[in-house]
C-alpha cells in the first residue's frame, strides 16, 4: 500500500527523507553490531576505534574482526534484496526470489565441487561464482531453444529444471564427500555463513555487485514498463527481450558474487522487496535503493544474531528461514494487499 492510495496531488514524494532515515538507521545498526561480541565495546569505544583513536585492542577487534563481517553482511543483504526486487519486477511476480533461474543451485554446486576437490578458499569462491553464472547461462540458452510465446514462463520453468539438476549433482557430491571433513563444510556452506569472511573476500565482490547495480539503476524506468509483460512493454517502445537479458545478467552477477562470499542465504531476496514496496510503492527507481538499504540492515541484524546468540555460529540460512517463513505466511494471509 503506502503512498499508492493517498489522493493528495501536492504531497511531496517521501522517498528522499525515507532514504535518509534508512541510511541513518543503517549507520546506527552498524555501530550496534560493532559493539556486540565476546569482547564487548561501548558506542564511544567503537567510534574512537573507527576514527583511529582509543584503546589499541578495541581497534584490532573493530577493524580486523568485526568490520569485515559487518561490511560483508551489509553487502550481501543489500545485494540479495536488490537482485530480488529486480527479479520480481522482471518476472512480474512478487513471489519470486533471486534463485528463480537457478543461480543459487548453480553456485551451490560450484562451491560444493570446490570443497569436494579440497580447493583453497579463493578457488571455492570463484567456483561458486562461476557455477551461479553458468547455471543461469544454461537456463537462458535452453529457454532460447524452446519455441514458446511466453518467454518469461519458459525461463522460469527451465530455471526450475536446471536448478533441480544442479541440486541432484550437489547431492551426489555430498554422498561421495568425506563425512568427517568435507561434509560439514558443505552443509555449512549451503546454509550460508559469514563466519570465515575476511576483508580480502569482500574486495573482489564489491566491484562485481556495483557493476550489476549500475545497469539496474540506469534502467529503472524500463524495468517498471517490463513489469507489464513483454507484449505491452514492446508496444510501449521497449526492446523487451534485450532489456530483460540485461537485467537478468546484472541481477545474476550480483547474486552470484555475494553467494560466492556468503554461501546460499535464502529468503532475503524474497521478503525484503515486499517490505520495501510497502514503504515506497512499486516504482523501481525508489524500490531498488529502498530494498538495498533494508536488505543491508536486515542481514546485519541476522548475522549479528548468528554470531552472538549461541556458543556456536548459527548458519544464516536457518535464521533467515525462521524469520522469513512466518513473515511470508503473514503476507499471504493478508491476501493480495500484502504484495503491494
Amino acid at each position: 500500500m503506502g503512498r499508492g492510495t493517498t489522493a493528495d496531488v501536492t504531497a511531496p514524494r517521501p522517498a528522499p527523507t525515507l532514504a535518509g532515515w534508512l541510511t541513518l538507521g543503517l549507520a546506527a545498526l552498524s555501530i550496534g553490531a560493532l559493539m556486540v561480541g565476546p569482547y564487548g565495546l561501548t558506542p564511544g569505544e567503537v567510534v574512537a576505534a573507527l576514527v583511529g583513536r582509543g584503546d589499541p585492542q578495541a581497534a584490532v577487534v573493530v577493524w580486523n574482526i568485526r568490520l569485515p563481517r559487518v561490511g560483508a553482511a551489509l553487502l550481501v543483504g543489500a545485494a540479495l534484496a536488490a537482485a530480488g526486487a529486480s527479479y520480481q519486477a522482471l518476472f512480474r511476480n512478487p513471489l519470486v526470489s533471486p534463485d528463480i533461474l537457478g543461480v543459487s543451485a548453480g553456485a551451490g554446486l560450484g562451491a560444493v565441487a570446490g570443497i569436494f576437490l579440497s580447493l583453497p578458499v579463493a578457488a571455492i569462491q570463484l567456483s561458486a561464482f562461476a557455477g551461479g553464472m553458468a547455471a543461469v547461462a544454461v537456463v537462458a540458452f535452453v529457454a532460447s531453444l524452446v519455441r514458446n510465446t511466453d518467454r518469461t514462463l519458459t525461463l522460469v520453468l527451465i530455471g526450475v529444471v536446471i536448478g533441480a539438476l544442479a541440486g541432484a549433482a550437489t547431492s551426489l557430491l555430498k554422498v561421495m564427500a568425506d563425512p568427517y571433513d568435507q561434509l560439514p563444510a558443505i552443509t555449512f556452506w549451503l546454509l550460508g555463513s559469514l563466519a570465515a569472511v575476511t576483508s580480502g573476500d569482500i574486495l573482489p565482490a564489491l566491484p562485481a555487485v556495483a557493476a550489476g547495480l549500475v545497469p539496474l539503476a540506469l534502467l529503472r524506468w524500463r524495468i517498471n514498463v517490463l513489469s507489464l509483460g513483454d507484449e505491452e512493454a514492446s508496444a510501449l517502445g521497449v526492446e523487451a527481450a534485450r532489456t530483460r537479458f540485461l537485467v537478468i545478467v546484472a541481477a545474476t552477477l550480483i547474486t552470484a558474487s555475494v553467494t560466492a562470499l556468503a554461501g546460499v542465504v535464502g529468503w532475503v531476496g524474497l521478503v525484503i522487496p515486499h517490505i520495501a514496496r510497502m514503504l515506497v510503492g512499486p516504482g523501481f527507481g525508489r524500490l531498488l535503493p529502498a530494498s538495498a538499504l533494508i536488505g543491508a540492515g536486515y542481514l546485519l541484524v541476522v548475522d549479528t544474531l548468528a554470531r552472538t546468540m549461541a556458543q556456536i555460529e548459527v548458519p544464516l540460512g536457518i535464521l533467515t528461514a525462521v524469520i522469513g517463513a512466518p513473515f511470508f505466511v503473514w503476507l499471504l494471509a493478508r491476501g493480495r494487499r500484502g504484495w503491494s
Binding site: R92, P94, R222, V225, L236, G237, P282, G283
Partner: peptide
C-alpha cells in the same frame, strides 16, 4: 502484478 499509481501507468506511455 504491482500496485502502480494510475498516473505512473499513464506515464509509461511516454517510454
Amino acid at each position: 502484478p504491482f500496485p502502480f499509481e494510475a498516473l505512473d501507468v499513464v506515464l509509461m506511455g511516454r517510454t
